[in-house]
Amino acid sequence: MNSLRIARTALRARPAAIRAPLQRRGYAEAVSDKIKLSLALPHQSVYKSQDVVQVNIPAESGEMGVLANHVPSIEQLKPGLVEVIEESGGSKQFFLSGGFAIVQPNSELSINAVEGFPLEDFSADAVRSQISEAQKIVGGSGSEQDIAEAKIELEVLESLQAALK
């Protein structure tokens, strides 16, 4: 009689034991699939630890898209377009003049740059006239430093022109 009762409780206990692992699996869903973005300029912080879905950045090692739980890394940025895909599904594009992006272990992304503006703030005419000006200096007989600076300008302007198209 006594042994029968034990067998019955064991039978009753089993379904609970099967259910337990399933509940534990549900825990993973509580982890956020968003990445916290901080986009900071010396004079302004554009994003302040805001949840976003994805950020595409122009690293020196190549274009990369950063999602939540990305491998921690430090990337030097080329002058180029940063695309932020927000929670609402819309995306915003910023042109940064170059800086660093730091992916931290807890799904945080910090981007630092000297200058950065939304793409619609740029004037295609100003870019075009500066390109021809910089090309003149590169081809001219200025000092080595002037030519080096003009080459940097040309690199930035060409990237900007490609982004504006």
Binding site: P79, S97, G116, A126, I152, V156
Partner: peptide, 21 residues
């Protein structure tokens, strides 16, 4: 060409500012 990273950044930032509306 002998420029520092600081100088490179300032040149890049200057040209970005000049390209604005």
């Amino acid at each position: 060409s002998g420029l520092t990273y600081n100088k490179y950044l300032s040149v890049a930032a200057r040209v970005v500012r000049r390209s604005l509306k």
